[in-house]
Nucleic acid binder design. Structure first.
Length: 303
RNA sequence: GGCCACGUGGCGGAGUGGUGACGCAGCGGACUGCAAAUCCGCGUACCCCGGUUCAAUUCCGGGCGUGGCCU
């Protein structure tokens, strides 16, 4: 049986990249990044991007291909993914998407509303307004303009209220309206082999802690230092461990405290990822990477 | 050994004679362009024993424990 693409999802530190690479070597694939943070070139260590040696073993796309100073987004990733898919086709290799960003997988398989990018000034203005009057008040204003979308949002959710507000401001159309008709999914009608790596909870926690230690030793602190002064509003500024590490560099936190903070944040993130996978990807093939591996799983369904 | 203070959920930390704040961690959930983000929900914890009281976590006595001071 032939697959148009392979999808590999899993929480942080579950070994997605390794499994994806092994499969790519086995079946002649290209590994395509589906992780919102591994796209940033300034932080290969802190985002656990595959090493140069690993990338040499099989083609990898969308890893470190943008700057942390860019306001990257799912929308842009979707464009990049379409292009990556085309390149895979040219190379004659099977696209293997690997990552932990649920929403990116959603863009792949369910589609995303085709909303024009918000002009920077509209976004800046909306953000300034939010800072000025607060979320509740912004939600109230949204209710005046776009009651439908407003009614679907919690007045306490700054991110979504802001998004709805700026979309209405820049397009004059309700976000709910836009979302009514999502654009075709990137992998429309594709034949997919989809997997979720699901290591036991204890194993996950242990690996997160262990991996973060290694990141520090491998130069994670220098990466964090180099990103000092990054606009906190940028997506890359939310990188796990960045804040605590910068605090460590400045001496505001001890090494132990910084490590604790970063590890706790990673655990909490992994929990959110699992919630998404459990509810959005129940039809994927789930397996425990401590017990099985992707090549075995893949061979089961290819037979 | 004596004196003083304290003893609240996994941790930190308010408070009260009758319904036991809150923060953190943890757990569950949501999720359509910042998503490693954002938001929502979840806790019979008052050291032990006796006494007072209609009612003790709260008052009294004793015990145990912790910290400090003193000899």
């Amino acid at each position: 049986m032939k697959f148009d693409a392979v999808l590999i999802a899993g929480p942080t530190a579950s070994g997605k990249s390794h499994q994806a690479l092994a499969l790519a070597e086995e079946i002649g694939g290209v590994v395509i990044n589906a992780d919102s943070m591994q796209v940033y070139r300034e932080a290969p260590i802190l985002t656990a991007q595959p090493s140069a040696a690993e990338m040499a073993r099989a083609p990898h796309l969308l890893y470190g291909h943008v700057s942390a100073r860019d306001a990257y987004s799912v929308g842009r990733w979707r464009e990049d993914a379409i292009e990556a898919l085309a390149r895979a086709r040219v190379m004659g290799r099977v696209p293997i998407f690997a990552g932990g960003t649920g929403m990116y997988f959603m863009a792949l398989t369910d589609g995303l509303a085709d909303i024009p990018a918000t002009p920077a000034e509209v976004r800046d203005n909306a953000r300034a307004l939010l800072d000025d009057i607060g979320v509740e008040a912004l939600h109230a204003r949204l209710t005046e303009r776009d009651p439908l979308t407003a009614s679907k949002l919690r007045p306490s959710d700054p991110q979504r209220v802001l998004r709805a507000y700026e979309v209405f401001e820049s397009t004059g159309r309700s976000l709910a309206d836009w979302q009514e008709a999502p654009a075709a999914p990137v992998l429309k009608d594709a034949h997919l082999a989809a997997f979720v790596l699901d290591p036991p909870r204890e194993q996950r926690r242990a690996r997160i802690a262990e991996r973060f230690e290694k990141m520090l030793e491998a130069g994670g602190l220098e990466e964090a230092r180099a990103l000092e002064g990054l606009d906190p509003a940028l997506p890359a500024a939310k990188l796990l461990g960045l804040r605590p590490l910068q605090a460590l560099a400045k001496g505001t936190l001890t090494r132990g405290e910084a490590l604790d903070g970063a590890i706790t944040a990673s655990r909490q993130f992994a929990k959110r990822q699992m919630t998404w996978f459990r509810h959005r990807m129940p039809h994927y093939i789930w397996f425990d990477p401590c017990v099985s591996n992707l090549i075995t799983q893949f061979s089961h369904i290819s037979a």
